[in-house]
Design a protein around this nucleic acid. Structure first.
Length: 556
DNA sequence: AGACTATGGACCC
DNA sequence: TGGGTCCCCTAGTC
């Protein structure tokens, strides 16, 4: 406490506040307190960006006339005075001069965005329209009978069962479950490394570092040999790798002459396999599609321009029922549907327009009659039936999955087990205040209603989780968050397991706090540490300290 | 603890 | 159509 005598030694200080900041400070109690303390002491802090002092030294010496300090806060986003953007505790306050960070519309901020309260944002389902395209016939004959009508009760894997942290040396970019072995998860990272993890045995993990030289964008299992995988990379190659040995061969190299500058360097993002035709389909960052025959390892024909020339194609998906129907998406703001039998430039069956880059586009996993897209305009879109009117989506769901150059792009994915083909999982960008901690949940969304079914969090996961994959057979979610991998199971189920709900977290690799090791081999098994959720904390972050002190959820 | 940075897309002209 | 500049709720390292 400042002594009273000190107060009298200084002239009275008046603090002039902006009316704007006064209005916007309803949630800024902490900030206000600080200001009041400063007032008592008559001292200003470095936090105040500008201060207008009436610097009349005569008056100061006499100690008569009050000094007026104008506390004009400067926003770090728009550089304007009167408000501040940034975290206030665990809640982020938007710059009010910018469009809403969530829905991208001006006039309000994320805190007051209507889509923050309810994620439901549907448009009237598109009317069915009689067309005479071949898809119509496919639909009526093959697909319509298999469409389910009953909606199941969703089982949400909402508790971390085990994890490997610092497993990859760079952020995780893709995940894939093994098609037959239930406990095997494959992961790719930004450096091009491939991880093979047996999360049933937690410690059994392997990282192969010599397959690609940069971002591993996509993986697919060989449909006839599940020991082998195809992987597509930004190094411009498709590799064919034996999971047991890590030995790989190159199926295609789009940069045979090496680096000739950014204008010619080809990168492969989207990849899928048409098992009927026996071809691997990939697309590059210049808008071209390539097909490689699995049996002969030869390219089929020439590259076909499927998106705007010079733009990146990021996603390729073959229809699960009709593999010749192809769905692609990319940076030209379109998702497009093609028929592989008649494919050439500008022969797309439908062009699904988006407002921004389309990160992903997936057919629904069972019937293939719905399409789910993730676009950088912060909206998920669903086309209810690819056989209806495709002029507009049947539903748009506002959801925070902003583009950020430092994050793997978000991709909403279907739950492959949901017979109603409604449930989707997608990581969330904006954080939410959970007991004083800012955490980024993973959202489960019912795409048929737009409702948020569940948001799952774990205090150990403090980073954004853009990569999520639901298990094809079990109620398991795999998450890639920064360099770490997490396996989630439903709470009830976890308790049935013999080990109780003891969560295992393996810290793999270098630079773990007590070791101080640098440049260690991140796949070095001896570097592992196991933590159980009951006894120890993974690491005592601010977040966890806060969480351990509070028990109730105070959000919303 | 704070500075630094890798790095992709939008938007401007 | 292309180069320059800005974005600024990242994560990890030095």
């Amino acid at each position: 406490m400042a002594p009273l005598t000190r107060r009298t030694a200084f002239p009275k200080v008046l603090i002039e506040r902006d009316s704007d900041s006064e209005q916007s400070s309803s949630e800024e109690e902490e900030g206000e307190e600080e200001v009041l303390e400063e007032e008592d002491d008559g001292v200003t802090t470095a936090n105040e960006k500008t201060e207008n002092l009436e610097e009349d030294s005569d008056i100061k010496r006499k100690g008569k006339a009050p000094i007026t300090i104008s506390l004009k806060k400067v926003c770090k986003v728009c550089k304007k005075q009167g408000h501040e953007a940034g975290f206030k505790g665990a809640t982020y306050i938007d710059c009010p001069r910018k469009p809403c960070f969530l829905c991208k519309k001006p006039g309000h901020t994320t805190l007051t965005c209507p889509h923050r309260v309810s994620t439901e944002h549907g448009v009237v389902p598109a009317p069915r329209k009689k067309t005479f395209k071949p898809l119509e016939y496919v639909f009526e004959r093959q697909l319509r009978p298999s469409l389910p009508s009953i909606k199941p009760k969703y089982v949400i894997p909402d508790q971390v069962n085990c994890a490997v942290v610092r497993y990859h040396s760079r952020r995780v970019t893709c995940l894939e479950f093994h098609p037959t072995k239930n406990n095997i998860l494959l992961s790719g990272d930004k450096k091009g490394q491939l991880g093979v993890w047996d999360f049933g045995k937690v410690y059994e993990k392997m990282v192969y570092g010599n397959i690609h030289s940069c971002i591993l964008n996509n993986m697919r299992f060989n449909p006839t040999n599940d020991c082998m995988i195809y992987s597509a990379s930004s190094d411009g190659t498709i590799s064919y790798t034996d999971l047991e040995t890590g030995l790989s061969s190159s199926l295609m190299n789009l940069n045979p002459d090496g680096w000739q500058g950014p204008n010619t360097w080809k990168m492969i993002y989207g990849m899928d396999i048409n098992s009927e035709k026996g071809v691997v389909l990939v697309a590059d960052n210049f808008g071209f599609l390539y097909m490689v025959d699995i049996r002969t390892n030869h390219r089929n024909g020439n590259a076909i321009l499927i998106h705007k020339k010079g733009t990146k194609v990021v996603g390729i998906h073959c229809n699960p029922i009709q593999p010749d129907i192809l769905l692609t998406c990319g940076n030209d703001h379109f998702a497009r549907i093609w028929d592989l039998r008649y494919i050439e430039a500008e022969t797309s069956i439908y062009d699904l327009k988006h407002k921004r880059v389309v990160n992903s586009a997936f057919f629904s996993p069972l019937s293939g009659t719905k399409i789910l897209t993730t676009s950088q305009d912060n909206r998920l879109r669903i086309w209810d039936s690819i056989f209806g009117n495709m002029d507009s989506p049947s539903r748009e769901i506002v959801h925070s999955h902003d583009f950020n150059r430092h994050l793997t792009p978000f991709k909403a994915e279907w739950d492959p087990k949901d017979p109603s083909e409604s449930l989707a999982v997608v990581g969330r960008y904006i954080s939410e205040n959970y007991n004083g901690a800012a955490l980024h949940p993973i959202d489960f969304i019912d795409t048929s209603t737009g409702q948020l079914v569940a948001e799952v969090i774990d205090p150990n996961i403090t980073t954004i989780s853009p990569v999520n994959k639901l298990h094809p057979r079990e109620d398991i979610l795999a998450t890639g968050s920064s360099r770490s991998l997490f396996i989630w199971k439903p709470k009830e189920k976890s308790e049935l397991v013999e080990e109780k709900d003891e969560r295992k977290i393996v810290v793999g690799g270098r630079a773990e706090k007590k070791r101080g090791k640098r440049n260690g081999d991140i796949s070095d098994e001896s570097d592992d540490e196991v933590f159980s959720s009951k006894s120890k904390k993974l690491k005592s972050t601010k977040t966890q300290r806060k969480l351990s002190h509070r028990s109730t959820k105070d959000k919303r």
